[in-house]
Design a protein around this nucleic acid. Structure first.
Length: 260
DNA sequence: CTCCATGTTTAGAA
DNA sequence: CTTCTAAACATGGA
């Protein structure tokens, strides 16, 4: 379920679940999700506390006081669960960190598109991945600079983690809907006024966690997510939403309310 | 059985 | 060089 807001929730969860607890043992269950050696995880982290946490885009980076770091990426189906050491790990557990108080944090990932990996430093990791500024940290001036200098269709540009980091398919549709901009609108034709609307819609969309752990009743009724499905209806004009594929991803929008 | 899915990477085509 | 598409990855759920 993870785009930026969900990964922020995972970050908060991880921090609360690990704080003031020393790592006792780390277990890796899957070579694809955890490509690094289990032994090296244990060498690095046993006896230490995960005391540093940074979220950049859809990545959770976590490290110790002594500067050892790793990251979690949640793919499409990543999740955390707290269990008791000695309990059978839940289905789809790919990685588990056992802690000094008898609890353990399990990293679950049904589709195995997520990763738990070692890194050297956050800065080196961000540079290596080529991530742009985080979508919740980026300023209007930076946003304007980034998209003002880009070309092509707006939706894939929003999802380009090298431009800004953290927006995925669901939120891209959401913010474009709220801003009244067609997903196939080209950047060359989006003036500063509409770009500003988009920036504000981005912040509003991300501030509400709309795809995870948030009751639908708490999400404003004008959000696309309520109707983001086949045969969904636009709540503004009461016409059926359009569905197209863009870059292989399902894209919902209103062809009347969102203009190119 | 078929189709679709909140992600990233890579190869190849314009 | 940039933009864009399709495919691959692995698996569950409708």
């Amino acid at each position: 379920m993870p785009e930026l807001p969900e990964v922020q929730q995972f970050t908060d969860f991880w921090k609360a679940a690990t704080e003031n607890r020393k790592v006792q043992q780390i277990v890796a269950y899957d070579d694809l999700v955890v490509p690094d050696e289990e032994a090296i995880f244990n060498e690095r982290f046993v006896g230490k506390v995960f005391s540093q946490h940074k979220r950049i885009g859809k990545y959770l980076l976590t490290g110790t006081d002594s500067g050892e770091w790793m990251y979690f990426h949640f793919g499409m189906t990543g999740d955390f669960a707290v269990i008791q050491t000695g309990d059978e790990p839940p289905r789809f557990t790919r990685f588990a960190v056992h802690l000094s108080d008898g609890t353990a944090v399990a990293f679950l990932c049904a589709r195995k598109l997520g990763r738990a990996m070692l890194i050297e430093t956050p800065d080196a990791f961000i540079a290596k991945k080529g991530l742009g500024p985080d979508a919740m940290a980026v300023t209007w001036e930076e946003f304007q600079e980034i998209f003002g200098n880009a070309r092509g269709k707006i939706k894939p540009a929003l999802m380009d983690q090298g431009k800004i980091a953290g927006i995925g398919n669901i939120y891209a549709d959401e913010m474009l809907y709220q801003a009244g901009i067609h997903p196939e609108a080209v950047l060359e034709k989006i003036g500063p006024k509409r770009l500003k609307r988009l920036f504000e819609a981005m912040r509003r969309s991300l501030e509400k966690s709309i795809t995870y752990d948030t009751p639908k009743s708490e999400i404003p009724s004008d959000f696309l997510i309520h109707n983001r499905k086949k045969k969904g209806i636009c709540q503004q004009c009461e016409r059926p939403l359009a569905f197209i594929k863009m870059g292989g991803r399902g894209t919902y929008f209103c062809s009347r309310c969102q203009r190119k």
